[in-house]
């Protein structure tokens, strides 16, 4: 390959642009956040997974709700075939509920509670006539009549 007219200028432009691009990319990576992440990691590293999850971004939209879900999960009666969570519906709640109870199928506020499923009621209101299964943090486990 031979040197053509303008190759020197191309080379200089490439070096200048590459340096500028690299500086932009490094700055966009928000290096100032690094110590905070390291502190977060150090703080939670010795805790159980559920506590680490409770302190993480995934539960930031409603940490009490996450605590309720974990409490409900631990108190599910044996043989439960699915969980219907009655809580304010949102995409985040739907996804966290589906993941938290997996492998059990779990839905937020389904129109009916299928047979063998347990309802996890978030908040103080209890549906009339439903059977109480267990109290959980910020809610209760119940089954419909």
């Amino acid at each position: 390959m031979t040197e053509r007219n303008g190759d020197g200028a191309r080379r200089k432009a490439a070096i200048a642009c590459a340096a500028a691009l690299l500086a932009l990319l490094v700055a966009a990576g928000r290096p100032e956040k690094l110590p905070g992440r390291a502190r977060l990691l150090r703080h939670y590293a010795t805790r159980p997974l559920a506590v680490r999850r409770l302190g993480s971004s995934s539960s930031a939209f409603d940490r009490r709700f996450f605590f309720f879900l974990e409490s409900a999960r631990l108190k599910l009666p044996p043989g439960t075939r699915g969980v219907a969570v009655f809580a304010p519906p949102s995409e985040q709640a739907r996804n966290v509920v589906a993941y938290q109870f997996a492998p059990l199928p779990a839905l937020v506020a389904p129109p009916t509670v299928p047979g063998g499923w347990v309802a996890a009621i978030y908040g103080p209101v209890r549906p009339a006539g439903w059977r109480h299964v267990a109290d959980v943090s910020d809610g209760a486990l119940m089954t419909p009549p």
């Binding site: 680490r52 993480s56 996804n95 966290v96």
Partner: peptide, 11 residues
């Protein structure tokens, strides 16, 4: 820094 948390990761 924290357990896997993106919305699509859960879903």
């Amino acid at each position: 820094a924290e357990p896997l948390w993106p919305n699509d990761y859960f879903a």
